[in-house]
Design a protein around this nucleic acid. Structure first.
Lengths: 129, 129
DNA sequence: ATTGTATTCAATGAATTGGTTGAATACAGC
DNA sequence: GCTGTATTCAACCAATTCATTGAATACAAT
């Protein structure tokens, strides 16, 4: 349903086995067999995981006789990092501005009523739950 | 099946609507109704998307009369960025070292056999597809 | 040609996902 | 108390996901 690149990448990394595979491929290329070894699932399951990673563009496979060494494509990470960083920064800036405002308010005029404005109730309680 | 924090965060962002919601929340808090407005899906669907985002820790909801303003929790982004950056950097370094090695090899000792070691055939052809 | 190894393909199944509709709940305004 | 608005709950459905097993393919070694 969501075939766009970013969705595929996030989806691919939403599985612990696949994330672990990526982590191990960051250290060195490996064959399907090598990759499958530490997990409890079947070899075929790992092969399918690799398919997901490949179609997300996170890995590529070359050829070495009957072996198909898997190789991490680090570039795709940029796509994600860019998306994440963009909104994280935006959000942080917003909170910074808001905190600034909130900090300045009680100090500047301590004698004014603390809540003269009935609206702007949002960002209430800070209730974590 | 994968209830760990990181999986939930990646899973949550693997949907375009949810990513768009996050993007809009980075600008300002909003109510469910406001958030649902631009999409073609029902209000209930959006409510469910928010539930996913909330249990992934990406958003929190406060209370304002019958409204439940949704608020972006930017902290969770760090979890992802850290994971991503770690392996990206590792992979980049590895490629850098390898490229260095490959670059230096033909120059240093042109008369030695180019492939005296039968193993280490990996990282072959570089065939993209 | 036969055997063994590495890997994928195909069919299947249970669980999860993303959507729907319809009924509940919670609250503000009259 | 009734009405409207904001939101969730619950049941349901189709599509997808993650795993399985068994058969196929590709190649090296004998």
């Amino acid at each position: 349903m969501a075939a766009d690149a970013l969705s595929q990448v996030f989806q691919a990394l939403a599985d612990p086995i696949r994330r672990d595979i990526v982590a191990r491929l960051a250290v060195a290329d490996a064959t399907v067999n090598e990759l499958a070894e530490p997990y409890e699932v079947t070899l075929q399951a790992v092969s399918q995981h690799l398919k997901v990673l490949e179609s997300a563009g996170l890995v590529s496979r070359s050829r070495d006789a009957q072996r198909r060494p898997v190789h991490l494509e680090a570039d795709v990470f940029d796509l994600m990092t860019k998306w994440i960083e963009r909104y994280r920064r935006q959000a942080e800036q917003r909170f910074a501005r808001l905190d600034e405002l909130l900090d300045s308010m009680p100090d500047v005029e301590p004698d004014v009523e603390p809540a003269p404005n009935p609206k702007r109730t949002a960002r209430t309680s800070g209730a974590k739950r």
